[in-house]
């Protein structure tokens, strides 16, 4: 059984259809990426899984249970956690407070101490800066904190929306390496990226989203060698 199953969903903003009949599935332990151009509907897909948007038709199942009718906080409680595009930290809170908020749900609150230690081991820079106010940190540090905050929620499925956006090249590889480390600890990953080459290098399988529909899917290798992907996304 798939960990996450997206079953033929369509999502609308008012009259406008932004996702049309999208189906996808993610198995436990996989790293999946969704690639596509700006405006293809990648963030919409992630936000629909998180429950911020409701599909008009179709359904989403997590561990075999329909989650597409649940409220966002109920979906978080199940372990489906999102790192939103642009970090979106709580700007006036310290590093520590941002992490504490990450473990707000009753389930993750019980493992708060343990998870914070894990986060600090994985991201020692955050430990040095516990009291620093989030908005005063650099873009790369903020991205680390955003990921750390998501880990505090004890994710089963971690969804990252454009984690490399706006980062220096060195920082990009650092973030991707971090994602790999998280996956190695048994967390299933759904990665949304415009940085197609890097994303495909990292993942097992991928989906290509174009104008709200999935046009291609396959293993990372298949997609990297696909002529359309090469031409449209890799500039080869």
């Amino acid at each position: 059984m798939a960990l996450l199953e997206i079953d033929n969903i369509s999502v609308y903003y008012g009259e406008m259809c932004v996702l049309r009949d999208v189906s996808a599935q993610i198995d436990s332990g996989e790293i999946i990426c969704v690639v596509g151009a700006n405006g293809a509907g990648k963030s919409t897909l992630i936000n629909t899984i998180s429950g911020l948007l409701k599909p008009k038709t179709g359904k989403i199942l997590f561990n075999g249970e329909v989650i597409s009718k649940l409220e966002p906080y109920q979906i978080v409680e199940k372990g489906v956690i999102q790192v939103p595009e642009g970090r979106r930290l709580f700007p006036n809170m310290s590093v520590e407070e941002n992490l504490l908020i990450g473990s707000y749900t009753p389930t993750s609150r019980k493992k708060r101490k343990e998870n914070m230690e894990k986060v600090f081991t994985l991201l020692p820079r955050l430990a040095e800066r516990r009291k620093q106010i989030a908005r005063t940190m650099s873009g790369g540090e903020q991205q680390m904190l955003a990921i750390g905050r998501a880990l505090m929620a004890d994710p089963k499925l971690l969804m990252l929306d454009e984690p490399s956006l706006g980062l220096a090249p060195k920082m990009v590889s650092h973030v991707l390496e971090l994602i790999q480390n998280i996956a190695a600890q048994g967390v299933t990953i759904l990665l949304v990226e415009q940085n197609v080459y890097h994303a495909l290098k990292l993942c097992n399988r991928g989906y290509v989203l174009e104008n709200g529909s999935i046009t291609l899917m396959g293993t990372a290798e298949e997609l990297l060698n696909n002529p359309h992907v090469k031409k449209a996304y890799l500039g080869l």
Binding site: Y73, R88, F90, P91, N92, M93, E97, I101, Y104, R149
Partner: peptide
């Protein structure tokens, strides 16, 4: 905890939802 959740909601309502805050 609740006070922190309130401040978080005031700072960014959308992300507060993603943190599991009702």
């Amino acid at each position: 905890e609740l006070g922190r959740a309130m401040r978080a909601t005031g700072q960014d309502r959308g992300v507060a939802l993603l943190m599991g805050i009702n």
